[in-house]
C-alpha cells in the first residue's frame, strides 16, 4: 500500500521536486500532443515506418547545423533537420520510383545511410560536439528544466525549451484544425481528393514537413525512436475506442496527459529514463484498449462471436 502511495506522490513530495517535475510534465504533454496529432494522419496513411525513417534521417542535418552554428539552439537545428528529413524523403521516393528497389528496401537503405552519416560526422567532430550519442536514441527529457530561461522585454517567462515546444504544439494544432478536411480526404480517398482539385502531392510533402518539424522539436527530449511510440500508439489505441476521426484527435490531447503523468511516475518509481517510461506507459495504455476496446477489441470480438455468430459475415469484410 505504501509503495502505491510513494508511486503516486513521489514525484510531488517536495516543492523543488514539484517545480522540476512540473516542467517535465508540461514538456512531455506538449511533445505527446504534437506527435499524436501528426502521427494520427501518418498512421492512417500507412506511413508509420516512414515516420521512423525520417526521424532517423534528420541526424546528419542536426549535426551539420550544430557544426556550422556551434549552438544547440532550436532554429538552425530545425532548418538542418528539416532539410535532411526532406532529402531523406525525396531519396526514398526517387529510389522507389526510378530503380528496381521496393519501397521498404528504399526506406531502410536511405534512413540507415543518413543515420550512419550523422554518426560518422559526430565521431569525426567528437571534440566539438557535446551531443550524447545515446541521447539521440532516447532523449533526455529529465534535463529539460536545466534549459535557460526565456527573457522577453526583461521579463522572465520561464523555460525556453518548453516555450518553443509550446509554439510548435500550437502550430501543429492550428494546422490540424485548419487543414483537417484536406488531410481527412487525402488520407481516406486519394481519388476523391484529386477530383476536388486538392494538390495531393503537396499535402503529402506538407505532412512530411510537419513530421520533420515535430521530430526535430521532440528529438532532444525523447530521441528519435521513442518519438515513433508517441506518434503511432495514441491513434492506434484510440481507434479501438472511437469511430470518428475528430473524437480520436481530441482524445489524443487527453491521452497525452496520461502519457506524461504515467511516464513521470513510472520513471520516478523505477528509476527509468523518462522518455522510455512515457513510451512504456503508452504501451500499457495500448494493451487494454486493444483487448477491451468496444470498437474491434480482441476480447469484445470473442464475446460477440460467442453470443451471435451470425455477425461474422458482415463484420469481417
Amino acid at each position: 500500500m505504501s509503495s502505491i502511495i510513494t508511486f503516486l506522490t513521489g514525484p510531488w513530495a517536495t516543492p523543488e521536486l514539484i517545480s522540476w517535475n512540473f516542467q517535465i510534465l508540461v514538456m512531455g504533454f506538449l511533445v505527446c500532443i504534437s506527435c499524436a496529432l501528426v502521427g494520427t494522419f501518418v498512421s492512417l496513411r500507412r506511413m508509420s515506418l516512414l515516420g521512423d525513417a525520417i526521424s532517423h534521417g534528420i541526424l546528419p542535418g542536426i549535426v551539420l547545423a550544430y557544426l556550422f552554428t556551434g549552438s544547440l539552439s532550436l532554429f538552425p537545428m530545425w532548418i538542418g533537420a528539416a532539410l535532411a528529413g526532406i532529402a531523406c524523403g525525396v531519396s526514398i521516393q526517387w529510389l522507389h520510383t526510378k530503380t528496381r528497389l521496393r519501397e521498404d528496401a528504399a526506406m531502410g537503405l536511405t534512413f540507415t545511410t543518413f543515420f550512419a552519416l550523422g554518426m560518422v560526422l559526430l565521431g569525426l567532430n567528437a571534440e566539438n560536439i557535446h551531443l550524447d550519442v545515446a541521447c539521440i536514441l532516447y532523449g533526455e527529457i529529465g534535463l529539460i528544466p536545466l534549459e535557460t530561461d526565456w527573457y522577453l522585454f526583461g521579463k522572465n517567462l520561464g523555460n525556453q525549451a518548453i516555450w518553443s515546444m509550446g509554439f510548435i504544439c500550437i502550430f501543429t494544432q492550428l494546422a490540424t484544425f485548419f487543414f483537417y478536411k484536406i488531410l481527412l480526404v487525402t488520407s481516406f480517398d486519394l481519388s476523391l481528393a484529386k477530383s476536388l482539385g486538392i494538390p495531393v502531392n503537396w499535402v503529402q510533402y506538407g505532412l512530411m514537413f510537419f513530421l520533420a518539424l515535430v521530430v526535430v522539436a521532440s528529438f532532444e527530449s525523447v530521441g528519435v525512436i521513442m518519438v515513433l511510440a508517441m506518434m503511432i500508439l495514441p491513434p492506434v489505441s484510440l481507434s479501438f475506442l472511437f469511430t470518428r476521426l475528430p473524437c480520436i484527435l481530441w482524445s489524443c490531447i487527453a491521452l497525452s496527459i496520461f502519457y506524461s503523468l504515467g511516464g513521470i511516475h513510472l520513471a520516478y518509481a523505477m528509476d527509468f529514463p523518462i522518455s522510455a517510461s512515457i513510451a512504456l506507459t503508452a504501451v500499457f495504455i495500448f494493451l487494454p484498449c486493444c483487448l477491451l476496446g468496444s470498437k474491434g477489441g480482441l476480447l469484445i470480438g470473442l464475446f460477440d462471436l460467442v453470443k451471435k455468430p451470425q455477425i461474422e459475415d458482415c463484420s469481417t469484410k
Partner: peptide, 14 residues
C-alpha cells in the same frame, strides 16, 4: 480502407 475512422455521414459529407 474500411477500418478508417469515419462514419457513413462523414463519407457523404466529403
Amino acid at each position: 480502407d474500411w477500418d478508417f475512422p469515419v462514419t457513413a455521414m462523414d463519407v457523404v459529407l466529403m
